[in-house]
């Protein structure tokens, strides 16, 4: 049980041992804060899926407008009727936070998929093919690491904010916010480099192991070794990095929106924080609650990331 890799490699017995994933899951289940984080993420997914049923008030018809002065109550402190209070414009903060959770889920998952695809492709090819390919890819990675990315993200976001003409793409009845999607791409392009370096290091280590040498001497192709032997073995590491990427993607989108460079056509948590920032001294609840929800979401992803890395590398916990 202590050495999980044995279970995988002992292909002699007919009965398959407990898979590595099952072992990891068993360890993860014992990690209290990790399970707590997972619970919060599931709650977020449920809220996002059922946002129209949970939120007491409908979303704004147009994101730029503030028409829904809900029952004429503007700038009301939190009460039973408005759990998070209302803004100076009279929108219900609780409802808006609930509706915006959909975009949070969208940002998190799309940004992570793009970032991790880039990470895996660059890390795997650079690490495994080595030599010139490695040299070129690592130089590119270095440029991305040296780039003052936090600042350039703002420039890109601002440029596309001015260029986007249509607010939504409609694909099969689902409206996809264009500006937000572009921001996700920008954020992803600036966040793969560090991860790719870690994966490359892992691949370099695996490349020298005996089972890879054995597979090579049996005449396996590079592609086969990369996809069938190396990829599954870097996957645990990749999953930990992915959870941490989720946490940072949520944060980055939030501060880009907070600074006013977000998608003008979608209401995200960062956008809610930006809108009420100037009324901080009067309607503090409109800042505190969306921020608290944002904080808890990022915390949830980080807790799961920590729990997973402990479950995958149990040595580090001893």
């Amino acid at each position: 049980m202590a050495d999980t890799s044995k279970n995988k490699e002992s292909g002699f017995s007919m009965k398959r041992g407990v898979s590595q994933w099952a072992v990891t899951w068993r360890r993860f289940k014992k990690h209290k804060s990790g399970m707590f984080g997972l619970g919060m993420i599931i709650a977020l997914l449920v809220i996002a899926a059922l946002h129209n049923y949970i939120a007491p008030y409908p979303p704004r018809p147009l994101p730029g407008s503030f028409t829904p002065l809900y029952e004429g109550e503007a700038g009301m402190p939190p009460s039973l009727k408005h759990p998070f209070g209302t803004t100076v414009m009279g929108t219900d903060v609780f409802s808006e936070v609930i509706h915006a959770s959909v975009y949070t889920v969208y940002v998190t998952f799309l940004a992570t998929v793009i970032t991790m695809l880039l990470t895996i492709v660059v890390g795997l090819t650079a690490g495994y093919l080595g030599r010139h390919v490695d040299e070129v890819l690592m130089r590119i990675t270095e440029v991305f690491l040296v780039f003052p990315s936090t600042l350039l993200i703002l420039v890109f976001a601002r440029i596309y904010q001015l260029k986007v003409s249509e607010p939504f793409w409609y694909i099969g009845g689902i409206s996809i916010p264009v500006g937000l999607t572009i921001i996700i791409f920008i954020v992803s392009i600036f966040s793969w480099a560090g991860n790719a370096r870690i994966v490359r290091g892992e691949v370099l280590r695996l490349k020298e192991t005996e089972y890879i040498q054995a597979s090579k001497s049996l005449g396996a192709s590079s592609r086969w070794i990369m996809l069938r032997h190396i990829l599954p073995n870097v996957l645990p590491q990749v999953i930990v990095l992915a959870t941490l990427t989720m946490a940072s993607a949520v944060l980055v989108e939030a501060w880009v929106s907070f600074l006013g460079f977000g998608d003008p056509n979608t209401i995200t948590w960062g956008r809610l924080l930006q809108e009420s920032f100037n009324d901080l001294s009067t309607t503090w609840w409109a800042e505190i609650f969306p921020g608290l929800v944002l904080f808890l979401t990022v915390l949830a992803f980080n807790l799961v990331g920590d729990g997973l890395s402990d479950a995958i590398n149990p040595r580090l916990r001893e």
């Binding site: 804060s33 946490a247 944060l251 939030a254 501060w255 907070f258 924080l273 920032f277 901080l280 001294s281 503090w284 800042e287 505190i288 921020g291 608290l292 944002l294 904080f295 990022v298 915390l299 980080n302 807790l303 920590d306």
Partner: peptide, 22 residues
């Protein structure tokens, strides 16, 4: 420290302003 890495910096700033300034 896990709170620290999860805390949106601007929100933490806002909380401090609310408490210590306002």
């Amino acid at each position: 420290s896990i709170f620290g890495i999860s805390m949106p910096v601007f929100w933490f700033g806002i909380v401090l302003i609310l408490i210590f300034s306002y």
